[in-house]
């Protein structure tokens, strides 16, 4: 019983983190049709930003919105200065460009911070834990989970209920018609890139609270984000969340029963199976309907 509960909590925690990561990734994929390899580095940058703010004595959870603001500006500028210039090319070009950007960012992180693993020193109110039915749940994990879930809800509200969100959905559904009704695609692209980068930053910052921070941390997380994005499919808000919970559940069941290496294998086999059966993901749709 307590093992089942522990697995359930782990799944919720991982699921919440992967959901916001996959949401940001799927947004850029869906609206800009860019497979952003540099997303791995963006997760890592978010984690380092949170680590830096925590070093200054800021509460690690309170630092997340600040990290997100910084990463929004970063993503906006990256799109405006570099990625905007390959948007109409073959899609292999944007993959190569984001791969190059990923190299630069990871190289910079190695140069500035070294390959050393670092972890955020938690303040007292995040240190304790509660016991629910024999399963341990630290305060830090509860806070991370709640933050991730409310962030998903916030993005859903933004995409579904605001004018800008509607414009983004319109651009995704029909690029030409969106232009005809006066939506400026470049502005939409920059906003979406900014939001995506902010979500990557949030994922990294929240991971910094419970795991350690290193320049290569994004690479492993990126694979999980890809799996979740594909599992959930594009074009729905709830998709990444469902995909993330499924992956979180499978990963933590397999990790608890057989060990960590098999968890990665199970996740990859799961997504290949889903792709073979439903090429557009579990909840994928042709059009974006939040």
């Amino acid at each position: 019983m307590s093992l089942a509960l522990q697995i359930g909590f782990d799944a919720l925690l991982l699921g919440g983190l992967y959901a916001i990561g996959a949401l940001g990734f799927a947004l850029v994929w869906g609206v800009l049709n860019v497979l952003n390899i540099a997303y791995a580095a963006m997760i890592m940058l978010g984690a380092y930003a949170a680590y830096g703010l925590a070093l200054w004595g800021m509460d690690p959870i309170a630092a997340v919105p600040i990290v997100m603001t910084m990463m929004f500006v970063f993503g906006w500028l990256l799109q405006r200065l570099l990625l905007d210039y390959v948007m109409r090319g073959p899609h292999s070009l944007s993959i190569a460009l984001t791969y190059g950007i990923n190299l630069i960012l990871i190289g910079l992180a190695l140069y500035l911070f070294t390959a050393e693993y670092r972890s955020v020193a938690l303040p007292d109110h995040l240190r304790g834990s509660v016991q629910i039915g024999g399963a341990h749940l630290t305060y830090a994990r509860i806070m991370v989970m709640l933050f991730a879930l409310s962030l998903t809800a916030l993005v859903w509200w933004f995409m579904d209920r605001t004018e800008l969100g509607t414009a983004i959905r319109a651009t995704r559904m029909d690029f030409e018609s969106a232009q005809l009704v006066g939506i400026r695609p470049r502005f939409i692209f920059n906003v979406v890139a900014g939001i995506s980068s902010a979500l990557a930053g949030a994922m990294g910052a929240l991971m910094a609270v419970i795991y350690s921070v290193s320049p290569g941390m994004g690479d492993h997380q990126f694979l999980q984000v890809l799996i979740v994005a594909v599992l959930g499919g594009l074009g729905s808000m709830i998709g990444p969340l469902v995909g993330a919970l499924v992956l979180g559940l499978v990963s933590s069941v397999v990790a608890n029963l057989w060990g960590g290496t098999y968890a990665v294998l199970a996740g990859t086999l799961l997504v290949l199976f889903v792709l073979a059966v439903r090429p557009s993901g579990l909840l994928g749709r042709r059009f974006y309907e939040a």
Partner: peptide
């Protein structure tokens, strides 16, 4: 680290300037 950064810069430059 330096060679990673330089190869990244070269990839970015070629993709943007000599696609």
């Amino acid at each position: 680290e330096i060679s990673t950064i330089i190869s990244g810069v070269i990839v970015v430059a070629i993709v943007l300037l000599q696609p």
